[in-house]
Amino acid sequence: MKILVCISHVPDTTSKINFTEDDTKFDTNGVQFVINPNDEFGLTRAMWFKEKQGASVDVVTVGGKDTEPTIRKALAIGADTAIRVDTEALEGFQVAKELAKVAKDGGYDLIIAGRESIDYNGGMVPGMLAKLIDANFINTCVSLEVDGDKATAVREIDGGKETLTSSLPLVIGGQKGLVEESDLKIPNMRGIMMARKKPLNVVEPVGANSQASTKKFEKPAPKGDIKMVDADNIDELIDLLHNEAKAI
């Protein structure tokens, strides 16, 4: 089985979110970048397939040279080959189109992406990619098994779960559940050394068009002061929730 894992290079969850250039650009100053958490669950599931069922695992990202440490980390975790499409990731559709080229060229059976990236939270790349390459698509995937050319997946729905089957090729939008938190691997020294020798292929972009563009960023308005209620005065809380917040 040939697996492609799509990796988004995102600010660590604890990053301070600030903007520069008149609030038109994300301020990367002092920000630590990581593999998008949803993608990391998918990557770890891919490693499981590699170990248990035999598979090759390529990882791909769309981005500038600054994203290389992130895909190197994926190599250190165990991926075989990394691909970087050498263009800035501007917007979901543009990224999906760039990935579609890599996906078609590679002839993958399974493409694992994350449900959404934690920076723009677009939630559009996996579905668009699937549609562009005419593959089946399962979103918010929390469990995935492959047997021959048939995949069985569980998807989260509002208030429950759905079990689905699909033929390959298949694209999934993955998240926690594909593997557990405790299954995530911190690359060891040997992995990091090996990753240096693994191929990281830089490919030219197709120059996909964007359909949307960010004009400006804003920060949420500062929060008003909290009202404290005494633990012995629950009636006051109920009164505030009913009459002031109109929440109950």
Binding site: P11, Y120, S213, T214, K216, F217, E218, K219
Partner: peptide, 18 residues
């Protein structure tokens, strides 16, 4: 359109050009 980004830590004004 105004949309949330960075999981509610910010908003962005996105122009849809299609």
């Amino acid at each position: 359109v105004k949309r949330t980004a960075f999981t509610n830590k910010a908003f962005n004004q996105t122009s849809i050009d299609t």
